[in-house]
Design a protein around this nucleic acid. Sequence first.
DNA 1: CTGTTAGCGCGTTCAC
DNA 2: GTGAACGCGCTAACAG
Lengths: 341, 341
Amino acid sequence: MLSLATIKDVAKRAGVSIGVVSRAFNNYPDISEKTRQKILKVAEELNYTPNLVAKNLSSKKQLTIGLITSGILDSSQKDSVNSIEVFKGVYTAIEEKEYELAIYLIDSNKQKRKSYAQFCRERNIGGTILQGIRTDDPYFKELINTNIPCVLIDFHLNNHTPLIGNVSINNIEASRKITELVLEQNHRRIAIMAGKKAAYVNNERLRGVREAFAAFGLQLHEEDILYGQFLEQAAYEETKKYLEKHRPTAIIAFSDIMAIGVMKAIKEAGLQIPEDVSVTGFDNIPITEFTQPPITTVQQNFFELGRQAALHLQEIMEGRAKGKQVVVDYKIIERDSVKPL
Amino acid sequence: MLSLATIKDVAKRAGVSIGVVSRAFNNYPDISEKTRQKILKVAEELNYTPNLVAKNLSSKKQLTIGLITSGILDSSQKDSVNSIEVFKGVYTAIEEKEYELAIYLIDSNKQKRKSYAQFCRERNIGGTILQGIRTDDPYFKELINTNIPCVLIDFHLNNHTPLIGNVSINNIEASRKITELVLEQNHRRIAIMAGKKAAYVNNERLRGVREAFAAFGLQLHEEDILYGQFLEQAAYEETKKYLEKHRPTAIIAFSDIMAIGVMKAIKEAGLQIPEDVSVTGFDNIPITEFTQPPITTVQQNFFELGRQAALHLQEIMEGRAKGKQVVVDYKIIERDSVKPL
DNA sequence: CTGTTAGCGCGTTCAC
DNA sequence: GTGAACGCGCTAACAG
């Protein structure tokens, strides 16, 4: 039986007014312990629990948080793990503080019908986490011009306001470290399988590569930077084309999924990994452990990324902090895809 | 600027009452085309869009659907793909019809704080999809005793009411087919790596195995049924123990993740796959393509499972259908983990 | 400490 | 066709 008891029922049965019931449930101090107990007891009997929709409408407090994610609907099953880990982290942190979660998934192939700001307004959303969004997305620009607090995962805004925070690993450093690892093994003919030119993390990682190169007195040439769009197939094709004219001893990929495409092309060219060509990835998706050979990569803790994003957003929403940059740890995982020269 | 225009603003500016605006937005027929156009134009100018929270509260129609999932928070990254595919399917089907989605994730290790019925009541949820829930879960029992329509993914209820539907592949048949495939390769000493005894799909698949055995004039012995709890580690340990006393030529696993544990134990026993022992999986998670050897398995379309669940739930909620059993296609994927004897 | 009342933004009768 | 008025279930200010 779904007999939805309302605040009125509780009030009547407890012999008080609805105002008191409301205050009892919201832990107001100005209420006698005796009536509070009485009310809670009656509520228990009636199996009453406040209706969140009504609460949301009447309360001035914002109690729902948005999660706007692009690229999950159209991503490969192989790396959708990342998104779900982020989601789990966000969910965990939000549930703990009894916020509500509203999810908006953007299919980057389709034209999105509704603006992000509109999505938020319609649902009384008090703050939102964004992931996989492009900085030049007009809807994104519109959103950050509202006064809705935002936390960005894996990207960053230059002119950030106190309402905008962001969370990521130190991509420059991670990229530099894994490049150094390759360089230290005496590789010099190195190609980079980058992602999308416009992507923030892409440029950060490129910068890390350049720093590592510079530390070794080397320079990164444009022709050795391939763009695989963070896609397996594109990475495969780009590598194939590249191998027709070049013979690198190592390829550094900016995502595991691209590393897999890279490895496929290398093998098809009759080359061995890591004997002929070393390969590195980025993210540490589960498959990297099972490929031939297992891939040396950068482990990102996506759960923590999501969790920290939700935590920081709550800080901003509750006025406990201004938007800042939160950095999450990463870890280099050495497996068998890199071999000294 | 977040200037949240309300229905009042539109009404005032269009020179009509809020009732008319509401009717214009909800496609009432009894409104002149002229004023409807006028209202839509003004709404556009004001960037107005109805507040869903208020709509949800005032409307008698149910416009949000729940998704209650257990086992995603505590599942391995390796097979959380399944859950996210289901989620994507559900999301896609729900968004299309402009329902709202409310997600409730249950950590099967922790004691859940809130009953499913309560979760639904608090949010005015009109119907819900359940996944990974145990039939003997008291909260589940409570929920199906309300009049909230439910669609169950991958499990089933005997005394089902017109408000309860369920979606899954034909597990008996799929299990029978893959067992036959092993049997046809002349394997006779076969062990089964089953999941959890209480799980619905587990028993269905067990039944499929028995049917296949019977068709070959064989019988399945209890001692050859191992229970790996749908976990890699448990499957590994059970296999290890089993191999100390038995020497099967094939092991049929009820999930890919368990097949991976099984394969690890086989390799550690100094045996080769498939030369010494053939192995099959179930689900077709991405990793199966990369293991050594790639695993022969049953492909489930989890996206479709989720999508059909949401579609069927909407039918029930809208009174267009009674709860029924929806069956989704599966496919046997033959790779290299099975070898004829 | 408690009751009353006015909203929150919208859907929905019921008159006109 | 349209407007006025009530109600959804709750919070929050105000009075007492």
